[in-house]
Amino acid sequence: MAETSDKVEGAAKIAEKGDSVGMPQLDFTTFPNQIFWLVVTLIVIYFILTRIALPRIGAVLAERRGTITNDIARAEELKQAAVDAEEAYNKALADARAEAQAIIAEARAEIQKELDAATAKADAEIAAKAAESEKAIAAIRASAMDSVTEVAKETAAALADAVSPAKIDAKTINAAVTARLKG
C-alpha cells in the first residue's frame, strides 16, 4: 500500500466501519483537519472579542460604574441640601419664636404700666372718696352727739322735775349732764 493513500485509507475505514477504530479521537488522520479548523475558530473568536465584544462590555461596565458613582454623589449632595434646608427652617423657627417672645414681653410691660397707672388713679380716687366719706361721717357723728346732749339734758331736767319738786337750777343740770357725757 502506498504511503500517499494512507490518509485516504484511514478515513475510508472509519467512515465504513466506525467501531473498528476504538477511539475515533485517536485517529491521527483527522488531526490536521481538526487543528486547522480549531485554529481558525479560535482566531475568529479572539478577534470578535478583542475588536467588538470586550471593549464594548468593558465600556458599558465602566459607564455603569461612573453613573452609579455620580448618582450616589448627587444623592449625597441632595441629602446635604435637605439637611441645610432643615437647619435654615429650624433657625427661622427659632428666630420667629424669639421675636414672638420679645413682642409678648413688650406687650406685657406696656399693659403692666397701664395697669399700674390705672391702679394708682383708682387708689387716689378711692382715697379721696374715703376722706370725703370720713368727713361726712364725722359731721354726722358730731351732729348726732349734739342731739344726744340735747336729749340727755331735756330728759335729765324732766327727771329732776319729777324726782324733786324743789326747783333745780337748769344750769346745774346742764353742767352735770355735760360732765357725765365727757366722763
Partner: peptide, 12 residues
C-alpha cells in the same frame, strides 16, 4: 471519504 486539512467536516 477523504479528509484533508481543509475539508469542511462536522468539526468545522
Amino acid at each position: 471519504d477523504e479528509i484533508y486539512w481543509y475539508t469542511p467536516t462536522n468539526v468545522t
